[in-house]
Write a protein that binds this DNA or RNA. Structure first.
Lengths: 210, 210, 210, 210
DNA sequence: GATGAATGAGCGTTCATTCAT
DNA sequence: TATGAATGAACGCTCATTCAT
């Protein structure tokens, strides 16, 4: 079955990515075997290795790919929004919405495991540092700065600290949610978190009255 | 005679716990071998299995033990504090202080890995659920309720939500910190987080005045 | 039409032989993969299997072909030489000359590996036995007998023993040379070996005079 | 079954060495599996790895050990012999005697395969170079020099060339023998080779007469 | 009790071979 | 005819666990 279209190969690879994500989420990276992944993808062990150099390479490139993908989707969402405040609100809405699916919780579990592993895997460290550190935090940081410049946010807040905290809170909530499961009132939690952060950064209109 | 023997056994076991924690933090649970642990503890593989039924049992009971220990230390700290607000402040101080040591970051890494694993290990789920859910969150929840009753905190806040968020934030920050390492401005982050939460729960006397 | 096709096929096959020889010499038979060979030949794995039934079949037929080829070249060289002594001298000259090229050392390595493998591969055993035993040794043996009949060589020498030793010495030197590499003074070794053998078989005219 | 005597371990290791040698000779290094070796030694795969870091390490250390062992046995044989000529004769006798056993032919096959592999295995190259180059050839070279000094051997011969050729001839004969098997008249071959070499190096008494 | 030798299931990875296109 | 995707048996190596001493 040779000479196969690039599109076909793309789909094969995507299917392996998806299977890997599923299995990593269910059993963890280390406990997932190549057989698990290929069985889930309905292919053979051998074929796996024409797409990926090793299990580790799959892991890194999977996380890299998903992280990039999420990032560009976030950036996409911001295109039509001009207000910094609205952008922050949009972020919370997106996470609130995403959190509904089991697939999402699965992804979160994989992501966190990847993070915790990352200090021990050189290439993972790169992904975490360059993607998370630079891009994710940078994105929020820029929004905050924009909000400060536009007079929406307080001048005294530190954009970097808020950006870091934003992701720390999101990840903390997601982690708890992914562990606790259905019983976790994630909607109420996201709502309260949004309030806390907005309180912290927004110039409060009621203060004007006083 | 049995007294001495028991004491000796207790120390052996404590030493194995300590070694396990060290290794788990450095290499991860799965990558740590029994040999790693016993070598670090200067004992033999055989002895290990007189103390623990399996590697998994060690894992669970280690985490159980540490979680209990931390919990009682926290409760201890609260004994001399009567105000709810001060208790919350004390919590932040404790975490800020602890974060300084590498040993602590190591523990955080193990803890988070344990959490992420927990949905896949029945006994781990129990520990996480009963210890974290019930005790950790319950402890904060009770403080909040006390604060509400004492007129320190707003009536409209949900104690459970705040308690959950408190741990979610702490864990999120710690996770990022343990991954990012030295460059993470954890003190500034803890400070800002404390402000956000206090803002959210405290009845603000100064606003009334203004 | 079939002529052109056949010619094309012949060239393809020759190219595969050449690539195989190169790779076998560099990495060894077992460590050479079909991919190595086809990549070096710029063809596909599929095509390989239209020319050869298996990797082993290629190995056998490659060695068979090269052995035959070498044999006929040797015989060719003898056509214009009538004296047995000159023929033996020519043999040494040929090997001395050949030894200069890296390509040749490569071939020697492959040949020796093939020999050592041969007791374990039925078909290889055939090639070694029928080609080497019968033809190579036979060729020398006949030259020796001719020399004896012509009064050039001593009557008491055993043609078979000398023929076998001739190849044993050549192979021994070549093997050491192929392992030791550039530092091996192969020319001096060939020269001394020729002297030893000539001394052993030649009727020494000068001794009579003295 | 712990706390086992050093002697016991020594025997275990020796048994693994012996099994490995047997299997390598029969199937070749690459085709021999760890299971082959441990099955022959009646142990388990796991135990193998407490004695050897890897299959390759076993290979190298096996060859190193055998080479050293042979070398010291040769040196031992020379202790009671003072004449250089007698030493050379002793060498031929030893090889003639050894050649009788199938075990010996097996060893030769392994040795030659090791040599041919050696350019591709860094550690093997070391063993071949330092043991063969330095010790084996050096040993013969020194005997030749002694013979020259004692007036037994011709002054014009090059000790190094003769030493190298000695081993080249031995290895060439052994290689052919190990391939051809029972039908190879090794005794006649060794006898003729000894004559050739002796002729080449000895000062001939009959020349004195003339 | 304390040790560490012994076991073997299990996993990542390779590669000769097949065959649909 | 030519390609290279697909397969899966096989192998090197690891490691939790057992148990003889």
């Amino acid at each position: 079955m040779p000479k196969v279209s690039d599109d076909y190969k793309e789909r094969k690879k995507a299917s392996l990515y998806e299977s890997a994500l599923k299995c990593f989420g269910e059993k963890g990276y280390q406990s997932t075997t190549i057989d698990d992944i290929t069985a889930h993808s309905q292919t053979s062990k051998g074929l796996f290795y024409t797409y990926f150099k090793s299990k580790e390479e799959l892991y890194i490139s999977l996380m890299d790919e998903r992280t990039n993908h999420t990032l560009s989707r976030l950036n996409e969402s911001f295109k039509t929004i001009s207000s910094a405040k609205e952008k922050v609100h949009e972020l919370f809405s997106l996470y609130k919405k995403a959190s509904l699916t089991e697939e999402w919780r699965n992804f979160i579990r994989v992501q966190i495991e990847f993070w915790v592993h990352s200090p021990r895997l050189e290439r993972a460290r790169d992904v975490v540092t360059s993607r998370y550190e630079d891009l994710y935090t940078g994105m929020i940081s820029r929004i905050i700065e924009d909000g400060k410049a536009a007079g929406e946010f307080k001048q005294e807040i530190h954009a970097d600290v808020v950006a870091n905290l934003f992701w720390a809170f999101i990840d903390g909530i997601c982690m708890h949610y992914s562990v606790v499961g259905e019983n976790y009132a994630y909607e109420a939690h996201f709502k309260a978190t949004e309030e806390m952060i907005m309180n912290y950064i927004l110039i409060q209109p009621e203060k004007q009255k006083a």
